[in-house]
Structures are given as structure tokens and as C-alpha cells.
């Protein structure tokens, strides 16, 4: 079995890794790192009786992940403090949410930037408050800046000058140019508090919609195995807490124009991680196989494979994000800049 299939199999059922020899573990770990799932793998395998060198490396990974997670949650708290005077609720998105709220994808999950969602009409005030509290623009040129502000669903990224951590401030969950148009106002209206610390998160249904939108409608499936793992864990947790969760999810996905994206993400999670699904969610599409192939396109050295398929997904992700007449000038500008030795 290929190393990336090993990874999926071990995440699903860690006990299968007991049969792996050292060389197979080397490949597994390389692929897990490339897919940014090494922390998750280390947590899933925490209770296995493994040879000492492997167990030691997994323990190192868990311990580093704990430190990194704590730091990511703290970054959210610092953003909350900075925005508290505005009376704007800070709604966390993605990895930081799972960690702050203690949701099931959290153990070992790597968290990159801090992503927050704020109402579109408060975006200027939010920007000003962050700039007044030590955040600053990441250096970039005017074209990129204008591009972000005009077409993307976020402010250009800000970085904190002391802590050196990025924050992405979103006012909707997909680019304004994207075909599906999720109802960001409804997501904000239905957000729920995380404990009593003053931070918020999306409702459970919206959390799945957001994760699915990122996987299917927004991205080129890079990091897809990790995103699907999040979805698998969330679905298992939410469905076991509330029997009517699946119906509420279907209704909510339609409301956001994300019915097909959510259905696809759910099916892919099932195919890879055996997420338990109600019968009416099984209705498969033949094209799922193409997605699976793309998700598993990595060899035992951690290198990406299947070049053409990968490029097709890159074009696809740009087509989804912006209509063609916008896409052409954007790519052309990027190309010209590259031709001139720019950083595009």
C-alpha cells in the first residue's frame, strides 16, 4: 500500500500501524508531514506500543503541537482584546476554533494563521483597531493589495510586529467573485459563544459548510486530506450529539448555495475516513474518484505526483473563484510581473 494510503488507514484505525516496520514508518511520517497531519497522526497513535525510536518521535511531535496550539489560542485572545472596545464579536474560523472550543479535530492539528470573521460594515474599524494594536501590513505591492480588497473575501494579511503571527480578517467565507454565494450575514447572526471567554464560533452546521466550501469550492485541494479529517471528526461529533444534525446540515447548505459542495465533502470524508453517513447522503458522483486520486497524489518520499491532474485542479480552483473575464487579466498581470522578475 502507498504511504499516503497508509496515512489514511492509520488515521482511521491506528492499530494497523502496529504491523509497520521502521522503513514504512519513515515513509508514513514523511507523508504525514507533507500533508500537515503529523500532529494528528502522533495523537492517534499515542496509545500504541511502538518501537522506542518511533514512540519518541511521536511524543516529541505531540509536545511541540501542544505548545503551538496554546500559542495560536493566545493569538485569538490578543485579537479579542484589541477588538473589544469596538463591540465587534470576534468569530474564529477553522483550526483556532477547534482548539479554543475543544472540538474533536483539535488534538495535534496544526494551526497556521488566525482567521476571523467580522461583519462587512465593520471591516474598516477592525482594520484600524488592529493597526493601532501592533499589527501591520505584510509587505506587498499595490496590485496585490487592490486585488485582495476588491475581489477576495478578506483584508490583505496583517502580521503582528512583536509576535510575528498573521491574522486574516474575513467578511465572508468565499471570494466575492466565487460562484456559490454563502450568506455571511446569516453565519454571523447565528454564531455562538465559545465558553465565556468572549470569543465566538460558527454554528455547527455553518462550521461544516465553511470547511466544505474551503475544500471544494475555494481551494485546489492542497491540504485536502487534513481538511477532510477536520470534516470527518466534526461530523462524527455533531451527529452523535444531535440526531437531527444531518437534516439541519442539508437545509443550511442549501441556504448558503453550498449543497453540492457539502454533499461532495461528506462523501469524500466517508470514502477516506469511513465517516458514518445516513443512507440518503451516500448518493455518489462518478467524479468523486478524480477527487480521491488528487487527494492521494503523493509518494513515499513525501513528493507530489500526478502533475497534470494537479494542474487541472489549480485551473479549476481559479475558475471557481472568479469568472473568466476577471481571471484573464489577473493571470496576465501575474505573468507580466513574473516576466519582469517580480514576486508574483
Amino acid at each position: 500500500m502507498s504511504a499516503v494510503r497508509d496515512l489514511v488507514a492509520v488515521l482511521r484505525d491506528p492499530a494497523v500501524a502496529l504491523a509497520f516496520d521502521g522503513a514504512r514508518w519513515t515513509r508514513l511520517l514523511s507523508v504525514a508531514r507533507a500533508e500537515v497531519l503529523d500532529g494528528t497522526l502522533a495523537h492517534r497513535c499515542a496509545d500504541l506500543a511502538l518501537p522506542a525510536p518511533i514512540a519518541a518521535m511521536l511524543a516529541d511531535i505531540r509536545s511541540a503541537s501542544e505548545t503551538a496550539t496554546r500559542r495560536a489560542v493566545w493569538e485569538a485572545e490578543m485579537a479579542r482584546r484589541a477588538l473589544a472596545p469596538l463591540g465587534v464579536a470576534v468569530i474564529l474560523l477553522k483550526g483556532t476554533t477547534y482548539a479554543a472550543a475543544g472540538l474533536d479535530p483539535a488534538p495535534g492539528r496544526q494551526i497556521g494563521d488566525l482567521d476571523i470573521l467580522v461583519p462587512r460594515d465593520r471591516i474598516d474599524a477592525v482594520e484600524a483597531a488592529l493597526l493601532g494594536n501592533g499589527w501591520e501590513w505584510v509587505k506587498q505591492d499595490d496590485y496585490d493589495d487592490a486585488y485582495y480588497r476588491r475581489w477576495m473575501h478578506e483584508l490583505p494579511p496583517l502580521v503582528h510586529s512583536e509576535r510575528d503571527r498573521m491574522i486574516d480578517v474575513h467578511h465572508t467565507i468565499l471570494p466575492l467573485t466565487a460562484r456559490p454565494t454563502p450568506d455571511a450575514a446569516a453565519m454571523i447572526a447565528d454564531a455562538v459563544p465559545i465558553g465565556d471567554g468572549g470569543l465566538m464560533m460558527l454554528s455547527r452546521e455553518d462550521m461544516i459548510c465553511h470547511a466544505a466550501a474551503h475544500l471544494i469550492a475555494d481551494g485546489d485541494l492542497a491540504g485536502g486530506l487534513r481538511n477532510l479529517w477536520d470534516i470527518d471528526r466534526l461530523l462524527r461529533q455533531f451527529a452523535s450529539d444531535a440526531p437531527d444534525f444531518w437534516d439541519r446540515l442539508a437545509t443550511r447548505a442549501d441556504r448558503h448555495d453550498l449543497g453540492p459542495a457539502v454533499a461532495r465533502a461528506v462523501r469524500l470524508a466517508h470514502r477516506l475516513y469511513a465517516t458514518p453517513l445516513p443512507n440518503d447522503w451516500h448518493k455518489g458522483a462518478r467524479s468523486d474518484a478524480v477527487f480521491v486520486r488528487r487527494l492521494l497524489a503523493r509518494n513515499g518520499w513525501g513528493q507530489e505526483t500526478h502533475g497534470v491532474n494537479r494542474f487541472a485542479f489549480y485551473v479549476r480552483s481559479h475558475l471557481l473563484r472568479m469568472p473568466l473575464r476577471q481571471l484573464l487579466p489577473h493571470l496576465a498581470t501575474k505573468w507580466r510581473k513574473r516576466g519582469l522578475g517580480g514576486t508574483g
Binding site: T67, R70, W74, E77, M78, R163
Partner: peptide, 11 residues
């Protein structure tokens, strides 16, 4: 000086 480690921020 005093070295202070903040367990929340890791700083």
C-alpha cells in the same frame, strides 16, 4: 533582569 515565561503565549 528577570526572565518571564508566559505559559499562554509561549513568549
Amino acid at each position: 533582569l528577570d526572565a518571564i515565561y508566559d505559559r499562554r503565549s509561549g513568549l
